[in-house]
Write a protein that binds this DNA or RNA. Structure first.
Length: 268
DNA sequence: TCCTTATGTACAA
DNA sequence: TGTACCTAAGGAC
């Protein structure tokens, strides 16, 4: 379930679990040749930028992974069970194994190709080298809606449909507001909030965006469970009451994705 | 057992 | 804007 926090967490987990000599296989078949090249070497380093994951093996040799909408990674201890035939890449050591299924990208690339991936991505709130002003320089010039801009990985890397909906709610911003009408102060607040929310997402390995004062307990309401594993204000809550004002959460399709917002808390 | 849906992206027209 | 791609879970039959 991949937004940027998932990928940064995977970078940490791959590095922590795969120490020592690695054996690589591709039961599904599409990565067999590359797996043979990786086998016998150590996993030297891992890195994430937005939703892109890089596993560093030999010098000038990286596995570039993008999970897309369906990709999943599962970790386990040896003895590893026989892989199912959908496992694109299994990396195994003496003590652990990691299975990758359904990625949109899994390719062996060079340093230069990796640099090209970084070059087409915007700043990532989870990276220390990120420059929020570089993102705002593009946002403030754009007539495109802020909802679409937040999903554009060239502008800001790592935000997906959940963080997009939730951060706009938290700042009371109408998703249809054009980028050029977002003030520098608003952008800074949104960025700083994403930094905090996404770091918490890496730590917890899920997306929680509800402030302590708005939890069901704090508001004297029955406990609730959002079906994607985190506590949120608007994502996939179409037709249900806003946690703050009680208005019905709305949904609409925007650039082939579902957008969720509270029409009362996020007025035009 | 079939159909829908999903936290994504790239490419063609 | 539409379509293709990759997988699995949940719900309707």
């Amino acid at each position: 379930m991949p937004e940027g926090h998932t990928i940064h967490r995977l970078a940490q987990d791959y590095a922590a679990r795969l120490t020592g000599t690695v054996t690589a296989t591709s039961p599904q078949g599409k990565f067999s040749d590359a797996a043979a090249l990786l086998t016998g070497g150590p996993l030297r380093t891992t890195e994430a930028h937005g939703k892109h994951l890089f596993l560093g093996f030999a010098p000038d040799s990286w596995v570039h992974i993008h999970l897309g909408l369906f990709g999943k990674v599962t970790f386990g201890a040896v003895p590893a069970p026989p892989p199912t035939d959908t496992v694109r890449l299994r990396l195994a050591t003496d003590t652990a194994y990691v299975d990758l299924r359904g990625p949109t990208t899994c390719a062996l690339i060079t340093d230069a190709e990796k640099r090209a991936v970084h070059a087409r991505l915007g700043p990532d709130p989870l990276r220390a080298d990120a420059d929020p002003d570089a993102a705002y320089a593009r946002v403030r010039r754009s007539r495109t809606t802020i909802a679409a801009l937040l999903m554009d990985q060239k502008i800001i890397a790592g935000v997906g449909n959940v963080y997009r909906a939730e951060v706009l709610f938290r700042h009371g911003v109408d998703p249809y507001r054009p980028g050029k009408d977002i003030t520098a102060g608003q952008w800074r607040a949104i960025w700083d909030d994403l930094v905090e929310l996404m770091h918490e997402g890496v730590r917890a390995n899920r997306i929680d965006t509800v402030r302590p004062e708005h939890t069901p307990e704090a508001m004297g309401r029955p406990p609730r469970v959002d079906d994607h594993g985190g506590e949120v204000y608007v994502y996939r809550r179409t037709g249900r009451p806003c946690h703050i004002c009680g208005a019905e959460i709305r949904t609409a399709e925007l650039a082939a994705r579902n957008l969720f917002w509270c029409p009362s808390c996020q007025k035009p």
